[in-house]
Nucleic acid binder design. Structure first.
Lengths: 115, 115
DNA sequence: TGCTATAGTATCCAAAATGATACTATTGTA
DNA sequence: TACAATAGTATCATTTTGGATACTATAGCA
């Protein structure tokens, strides 16, 4: 009872680990619905391959929905599923902490420089 | 204004990404103070090298405090710093979401099997 | 004397994640 | 006719992570 298991944390890591997934999810959270290239343009350094593969994995986890319009040139829209919205608290806490951590690191660097 | 930047998320990923860091942090959150080998025993598959290196990185980010007792055999205690406590909301939201996501995946697997 | 325990390092290797680049099909437009 | 735009794949190369293993020092104990 004393040491709660970290199993949940491991599952979460498994579903959203990687350099890109939280970023992709953040954009979908902010913009609701985005086309493939729109996502690509909002994430400057991502390659097509990475964007595709990360979206596929998120789809597999039912976090992201993929809607294909049968037209040419292709149109594919991505969005968080209803279920996927449940991941928003993680994204928000990461965003909040990360922003303040950035300031923390900066402050510390400046203090070091002064010595 | 419309598209909030994901910079915070990137910083957070940078500080706590990896297979082990969130797990280590979770244990420190639960147990407050842990010796090196105590941590190692609570994380079954981690190697000494990974535990050491991940702790060092967390120390670098001022999230984890390392207290060395000058004695032999060595005694080193790890704990979250006051500052490091600020990361707890991320850990808790990951733990919560991960736990329910695990059930979600299970439920879905069973439904697939029934078809 | 030889063994255990602790908290590490050092070195080498394997595997996983990511990146670069070229390629696809089809429609509309200049 | 040639080119742009879309949402991809396929292939290969590189980088990053992580793992296995052997090694260290020293006190206390049998």
């Amino acid at each position: 009872m004393e040491d709660k298991t970290c199993h949940g944390v491991e599952v979460a890591i498994d579903a959203m680990a990687g350099k890109w997934k939280p970023i992709i999810l953040f954009h979908l959270m902010e913009n609701k619905v985005m086309r493939f290239n729109e996502l690509k343009r909002s994430i400057p350094n991502i390659t097509q391959k990475m964007l595709t593969s990360q979206l596929r994995e998120l789809e597999y986890h039912h976090i992201v929905h993929r809607k294909v319009y049968p037209q040419v040139p292709p149109k594919v829209e991505y969005s968080l599923t209803d279920y996927g919205q449940s991941i928003i608290p993680i994204l928000k806490s990461m965003q909040k902490w990360g922003t303040s951590h950035f300031e923390h690191l900066n402050k510390n660097d400046k203090e070091q420089a002064r010595e």
